[in-house]
Simulated scan of single mutants.
Amino acid sequence: MSNIGKQYQENVWGLRHVDLQVQPGILGLLGPNGAGKSTLMRLLATISEPSEGTITWNGVGIRENPEEIRRILGYLPQDFGVYPHLSAHEFLNYMAAVKGISGKAAEKRIDELLGLLHLYDVRKRRIGSFSGGMKQRIGIAQALLNDPKLLIIDEPTIGLDPAERLSFRNLLTDLSGERLIIFSTHIVSDIEATADRIAILSKGRLISDSNPGELLRHVQGKVWNVVIPESQLQEARAKWLISATVRREDGLLLRVVSETPPNEQATAVHAGIEDAYLYLSAG
């Protein structure tokens, strides 16, 4: 994609001047709510059209030829709705028909996906009785019905408990390979655990696009541990960029991102993706 922008009103842009090249693997879109992640994914899924710029797939413009990408696309939006009174098998049968897959081919594919996503034993249960993690897996199953080369997933771990989030992250890793998976989140640990490339959005702008190693180099030698009395927390927040806070018996342990040591007692520590994200977003 080149110079992509999406305008909603005069002087109101959801995205502006976004350039991004993609390839097989897992691309994580990282940014706070309102950064433009969902807007970008809707453009890629041909649900919305850009106000400016071009998006191509294998050299073909998707605005002029949206079917070029739709036939190889699997999409799980953040607000994905299910039919609570249908069973898992009934729902996937319905979605297969919508995608033009029918008969024995549909049955075979549905059974494969129910097995892959550990839902085969509950295939006759109504979806309304499923946990959040199970509903997300059903969402992934419908997105995979056509064995897509491009899988787009928007905020997949919202509302999941820690065990479900871990399971979902492992699933994304298992599904990658020759497939391109693009997923968005504002949860840094989800990106850190799965993505081999990370694009950071802020206020509709792409501020970083790199692999995790390159991202960490931005904050190499710039992360410090500092212990302060709890009474000084507000003052510390006003003058330092703090990525984490831990209460201890001797006070508060702060993780500070700074070009120089925050004070004489500061000790250097290894940087993490959260530190790099905070550093680049604050720039």
Rank of each mutant, 00 (worst) to 15 (best):
G128A: 08
F168P: 00
D121G: 10
S102H: 14
L44G: 00
K37S: 07
L206A: 09
G100I: 00
G14N: 02
A282L: 12
Q142L: 09
N93Y: 09
A271L: 04
A35V: 11
G283A: 06
L233I: 12
G31I: 08
I26G: 04
M1P: 02
I191Q: 13
L86G: 01
Q220W: 05
E64S: 15
N11I: 00
L253G: 01
E107Y: 10
D190A: 09
S202A: 00
E192T: 10
G128E: 07
R42D: 14
L73Y: 08
A163C: 08
L280P: 06
S38F: 07
G133N: 04
V226T: 08
K149M: 12
P162V: 05
P162H: 00
A199N: 02
N170P: 04
V256K: 04
E259R: 01
I72C: 11
G103Q: 11
G103K: 07
E68D: 14
Y83A: 01
S51T: 14
I153G: 00
R237F: 09
L254W: 13
P262I: 06
T185P: 03
K135I: 04
E274Q: 15
D154M: 05
D174T: 13
S208E: 15
R165K: 13
R205A: 15
R205L: 15
K149G: 15
S131A: 12
S208P: 06
L27N: 01
S202D: 12
R247N: 12
V82Y: 14
A199D: 03
I69M: 00
A195K: 02
E249M: 11
L144Y: 05
E52S: 10
I26W: 06
